[in-house]
Write a protein that binds this DNA or RNA. Structure first.
Lengths: 128, 128
DNA sequence: CCATTTTGCTAAGTACATCAAGCATGCAAT
DNA sequence: ATTGCATGCTTGATGTACTTAGCAAAATGG
């Protein structure tokens, strides 16, 4: 088990709840955060975020918060709904054949033609 | 040397210029992108992005574009000013366009179909 | 040549993140 | 009590991401 870092709470918190609990844990005030981030996150704004009045705080803001709280930026991005799958793509691994193909034995013309064909394939799909 | 993928152009492009050049390189139209992304990026909006009318497209949009163009999401995030420091990136290797294509997101069906097409292309050639 | 479609683009509107200012409560110290 | 300040919060204004509808020029084709 153990979903992720900072678990212990099983039910999923909203971004605001999470940020709020963390700030209290760090024993900081809204205005302290404002100061430390050099106004990048105003106290008023942070309040709204913590009360879930804001749905998607910008990456910049999230980054600032992640830095001063020392928590994972990517996780915040995910919680905020900014997908940001980051590099996690390393797992799937499914395709190899064409990749190695393309890497080694394709003439430029062949590559161009294949790319065109790929585009056409995808358009065709969304049109049916 | 060689700053990154798709180099050859040394002067730094704006996000819009970069996205525009890449789209033309992939030989897609604004509306094709709109279709492929299933309206997640409308043609009108993409036009504004490419002409730098929009300063900071959202991560979601950037992600969608990175996926269909097969370019680095983190790089777009950086260009858009969404810091996204991406820290210890163990990345590096760069090869042909199709290779990066294939590496990233091809469904198994797409891959199979592409390989078929490749074979057909080559057969056709040796028969002329 | 004219008609249709395609392409890139723009104009106007909506939604929402963000800021500046201020309000209300609590808590100290005088 | 009352002054002072720190805290969390709300409100009103503003900028800007994003949408929908549409246009003019180019391409396509009959």
């Amino acid at each position: 088990m153990a979903t992720d870092a900072t678990e212990k709470i099983a039910v999923k918190l909203t971004l605001g709840q999470y940020l709020s609990s963390i700030r209290r844990d760090r024993k900081m005030t809204l205005r302290q955060v404002e100061q430390i981030t050099d106004k990048e996150v105003s106290n008023a704004y942070l309040s709204q975020i913590e009360n879930d009045k804001i749905k998607q705080p910008s990456p910049n803001v999230l980054y600032a918060l992640a830095e001063i709280y020392k928590i994972d930026y990517e996780k915040l991005m995910e919680m905020a709904g900014h997908i940001a799958p980051a590099k996690g793509r390393a797992e799937g691994q499914r395709h190899g054949r064409l990749a190695t193909f393309a890497e080694h034995s394709l003439t430029p013309e062949e590559e161009a033609e294949l790319i065109d064909y790929l585009n056409w394939m995808r358009i065709r799909k969304t049109q049916s």
